[in-house]
Design a protein around this nucleic acid. Structure first.
Lengths: 124, 124
DNA sequence: CTGATTGTCAACCAAATGGTTTAACTTCTT
DNA sequence: AAGAAGTTAAACCATTTGGTTGACAATCAG
């Protein structure tokens, strides 16, 4: 069941925020093929090293990228676990875009309401 | 294969940005159960009507919510198609979290180090 | 008509974002 | 030792964000 309370998840905040920028999504796309340095990540976007560095920092804070310092270069590597978490969150809404499950959903909701009413009478 | 070009998708920008806020994610959770008015969306968060109205606007701009004006009340309904789009984007990376299970382990290790460094600021 | 309810709009605020530039620090090369 | 290369840090800037308040418009109830 979807959460009634305020959803408190700084991790999801950071992941979705990181994904909300097209440059960062493109960087992840690049990193899906091979590990890249900050400079290699910067050049395709005609962006300063410092700018790219900031984006990588955001991806790192979201847990989407890890960094290995090799001499003076910083090798960045994709970490997909957090993408899986975001995917898991989204899939909770899958029934809303999958019509096949509509009847099952209605059935489960009826059961939930019955259970809620039962607990209410027990409380009185 | 994942895209080499700069990913240009204002829709994904808007969807991921909308999902990056915990209040908005919670609002979607509420709307997954039934349609709600602006006021009904505002009260659980002890937030002003205007504040909730702004969040709903963001969700609307992202295509995640549609609104039906009934008299003086605005009924909001979840629209899941854009969530499906975001899900589709994430699934392009599915092989990265299916192939390697130790990715999570590496991530947790990196996270522990980051947490140790940030524990001061995280403690309110 | 008189109020109360529902919601938007505009103005404002502090904080964060995405970007730059300049300076500095390492590390590698010669 | 000198200099080039890779990266970060700091300062700065314009814009956006998430939130508030107060005024206003529309609708409903008496």
């Amino acid at each position: 069941m979807l959460n009634h309370m305020v959803e408190q998840s700084p991790r999801l905040d950071a992941v979705f925020h990181a994904l909300a920028d097209p440059t960062r999504r493109a960087m992840l796309g690049q990193l899906a093929e091979r590990e890249l340095t900050i400079g290699e990540l910067a050049t395709p976007f005609s962006m300063s090293f410092a700018g790219a560095s900031k984006h990588v920092r955001v991806l790192e804070n979201a847990g989407l990228v890890t960094r290995t310092i090799q001499g003076r270069t910083h090798l960045c590597r994709l970490q997909a676990a957090r993408l899986a978490e975001a995917n898991a969150w989204l899939r909770r809404y899958e029934r809303f875009w999958n019509e096949k499950l509509d009847t099952l959903e209605a059935l489960l909701r009826a059961e939930d309401e019955a259970a809620a009413e039962k607990s209410k009478t027990l409380k009185e």
